[in-house]
Design a protein around this nucleic acid. Structure first.
Lengths: 239, 239
DNA sequence: GTCTATAAACAGATAGAC
DNA sequence: GTCTATCTGTTTATAGAC
């Protein structure tokens, strides 16, 4: 499909077309996939270009080099995670900014977690960028600082606010922060350990019904934990 | 320290000395570290040899090549995980093979999880081999089959047996298998996400007191989940 | 913007001295 | 067993044609 002129494309990472911007997006998608699967150093620019259907030199042209492509991947991941979390928070509640009632906060938490589980387990995008983020976290990568500050820390803080409201505890207390990590840790594990989980469960991969079962498990644990914290503590330690 | 003759060393991975076997162990330790941190393909044999204080050619001599070193690393990991789990199961109960009483099974589970959390978070060995295993799982590595069959599947099955006994449910039911994955997933996440957790908690790294706090969190979630399953799944009422 | 050709550095494996 | 030296292939980056 030859085109004489292509309008400047938006960089919302959701509109690839058939122009010079399309190769840029294709390169990022291929790089996210390969960086996540094999790691940054282990991935050759030739392989990225081949999978993206582009030329090797196009990487240097569009991103300045392999390292620039890594930065572009990190930015893409940030917008993808932001989109998932924005959608999850938006659907969890009509229009309330500061929920005070514990049962409302608990219901919001459960709705958010159920949404995130399904998005993280089913979406092909998440299957790509979660391994990428994992690699960047493990080796102390130059994009880790930005990723933590702009994505993980704000998201975790918002979840802590809900958790604290749900059980009537200080949102930034150590117990709440750790409990939220334990909750999201379950989701992350089901994503990165999918090879193990699917083998043990006899599944071929994660589809809708499998994600529903996992969401049920995670949400059940969430309810159990909230209920226990609510009954046992007033902001104190274990007996 | 020049030695004229060295006795043949045992391969129990726990007895490095100053002979030809010492370089073998040093190479495995260095490779585990680097494979886990940067990935198999991204790690050069030169870097491994340099960190191990050995020569590049020694890798080919001892393991036949880079791939042989990977296999040796997998075998080392298997024995390390076996040691942790054996210790955890041994300390959880005096000598009972088949616990039938639910409260005994629940207590065993809690003891095992507490032990595993501390071992996985504090032990420098675990900090090495967990990233290695993660890499091997993510990319479909040739050692994944063995690792799953010999380590993960049997361990998960034993935990399912305890979980089923604790709540009075079929150990191999889908709900129990997923619940066990959610439980161990928390532990794995705290290990692989340590860079995120420590930043958010304001910790420099995982020491004894930090591992204790995380163990408390995980064990509290375990108790909450077991209690909930016990009250909802079966007709039995807790005292 | 996209391509080919090439340069400079680095990879794993191996032969052979000791 | 351990070492040096070297072979062969691949890597990223870049120069320049179109």
């Amino acid at each position: 499909m030859p085109e004489t002129s292509i309008e400047k494309q938006q960089k919302t990472a959701l509109g690839p077309t058939t122009g010079p911007e399309a190769t840029r997006e294709a390169l990022i998608a291929a790089a996210l996939d390969l960086f996540g699967a094999n790691g940054f150093d282990a991935t050759s620019t030739r392989e990225i270009a081949r999978r993206a259907g582009a030329n090797i030199a196009s990487i240097a042209y569009h991103f300045g080099g392999k390292e620039g492509l890594r930065q572009a991947c990190a930015q893409s991941v940030r917008s993808q995670i932001d989109a998932i979390m924005a959608s999850a928070f938006a659907r969890s509640s009509p229009a309330i900014a500061l929920p005070v009632r514990p049962d409302i906060a608990a219901n919001m938490l459960e709705a958010i977690m159920g949404h995130v589980v399904r998005a993280v387990l089913i979406s092909p995008d998440a299957a790509r960028f979660v391994p990428f983020v994992l690699r960047e976290i493990n080796g102390h990568s130059p994009v880790l600082d930005t990723l933590y500050r702009d994505v993980m820390e704000p998201t975790h803080r918002r979840l802590c606010a809900l958790w604290g409201a749900a059980i009537g505890a200080e949102p930034e207390s150590e117990a709440v922060r750790l409990a939220v990590f334990a909750m999201v840790g379950q989701i992350i594990y089901f994503r990165i350990g999918s090879q193990i989980v699917t083998r043990r469960m006899g599944w071929s991969d994660y589809a809708a019904s499998e994600a529903d079962q996992i969401a049920d498990t995670v949400c059940a644990n969430l309810r159990a934990s909230l209920q226990m914290y609510k009954t046992t503590d007033t902001g104190k330690e274990r007996p």
